[in-house]
Amino acid sequence: MTPECPKCQSVHVETRNHGRKAGGAIGTVAGVASGASAALSGAEVGAVAGAIAGPVGSVFGLVAGAIIGGLIGGSAGCAAGAVLGEVVDQTVLDNYVCRSCGHTFSKKPPEAVTATLS
């Protein structure tokens, strides 16, 4: 449920998700970098497995193993970064923007709402 604007009470509000986008991008880069060791070990396994088909198979196995290792590391990093960025969006950043008046705001967590009502 998208909140309404606290300034003009409009329901034309959208999420900005800057933290999630940045976290996903940073996580992808970090995942590919950390996946380099996995890519190298994957390339070694691919080269050994491809050696059955001769030198050409070894080269293709090496390349395929490196690509698969990098993709796995990058996708895992992207997923982790996006989750972390979503937490930053919800807790730190003003993640909502009103399309009617341009006001940016964050949604109060439920415990803050109940604390103000008491």
Rank of each mutant, 00 (worst) to 15 (best):
G50L: 05
G50Q: 00
G50V: 05
G50W: 00
G50N: 04
G50H: 03
G50F: 09
A51N: 03
A51Y: 05
A51W: 04
I52F: 10
I52D: 06
I52V: 09
I52M: 07
A53R: 14
A53D: 05
G54W: 07
G54L: 06
G54P: 00
G57A: 09
S58A: 06
S58R: 11
S58I: 00
V59L: 15
F60K: 03
F60Q: 02
F60Y: 07
G61C: 07
G61P: 07
G61V: 09
L62Q: 04
L62E: 06
L62V: 03
L62D: 05
L62S: 06
V63A: 08
V63N: 09
V63M: 01
A64G: 09
A64H: 11
A64E: 01
G65I: 08
G65L: 14
G65P: 05
A66W: 02
A66N: 11
A66E: 08
I67A: 11
I67P: 11
I67N: 05
I68M: 08
G69H: 05
G69E: 06
G69R: 07
G69L: 04
G70D: 05
G70S: 08
G70Y: 11
G70E: 00
L71V: 07
L71R: 02
L71S: 11
I72A: 10
I72W: 02
G73W: 15
G74H: 11
G74S: 13
S75V: 06
S75G: 10
S75C: 05
A76V: 14
G77P: 12
C78R: 15
C78E: 01
C78H: 03
A80Q: 01
A80G: 15
A80W: 13
A80F: 11
A80K: 09
A80N: 15
G81P: 07
G81E: 02
G81I: 06
G81F: 10
A82Y: 12
V83L: 08
L84R: 12
L84M: 09
L84G: 06
L84V: 10
G85M: 10
G85D: 01
E86L: 13
E86T: 13
E86D: 14
V87A: 11
V88K: 00
D89I: 00
D89W: 13
Q90V: 15
Q90D: 04
T91D: 10
T91C: 14
V92H: 04
V92D: 04
V92Q: 00
V92S: 08
L93F: 11
L93M: 06
D94I: 15
D94Q: 15
D94F: 15
N95L: 11
Y96L: 04
Y96Q: 09
Y96D: 02
V97S: 06
C98Q: 00
C98E: 02
S100P: 01
S100Q: 04
S100I: 07
S100T: 06
S100F: 01
C101W: 14
C101Y: 15
C101M: 03
C101T: 14
C101S: 09
G102H: 14
G102Y: 01
G102S: 00
G102R: 10
H103D: 00
H103M: 08
H103C: 12
T104L: 15
T104I: 14
S106Y: 13
S106K: 11
S106W: 10
S106D: 09
K107W: 15
K108D: 07
P109H: 01
P109G: 03
P109Y: 03
P110E: 06
P110C: 03
